[in-house]
Amino acid sequence: MIRAAAKNSEVRESTAAVPVLLSELRPGDTAILHGFHLDRREAALLEAIGLTLGCELRVCKAGEPAIVQARSTRVALAAAVARGLHVVPRALIA
């Protein structure tokens, strides 16, 4: 279970299991967004952009930046942000 590392950190999770870091996925992988381990403001911005807990992400490009697609929104994320997103790969759910 991931815990808050700092006072202002946002640690929120959905109930699914076996999360990995988004930065560990490869292009073409799909996953369910499981939790944020980010600054509260960053987490709120990501949710507003459309990366909400439980949504499905498709990795379009890995690395710096990582590019993911959630619903019809394509978002580029600095590697530091990709390391703060916990996801459950679709392959593991299946």
């Binding site: 600054d39 403001r41 960053e42 911005l45 978002v75 580029a76 590697a79 942000v81």
Partner: peptide, 10 residues
């Protein structure tokens, strides 16, 4: 500084 997060328009 906050790390970059940008929506990529089509």
């Amino acid at each position: 500084s906050p790390p970059m997060v940008l929506e990529l328009p089509s």
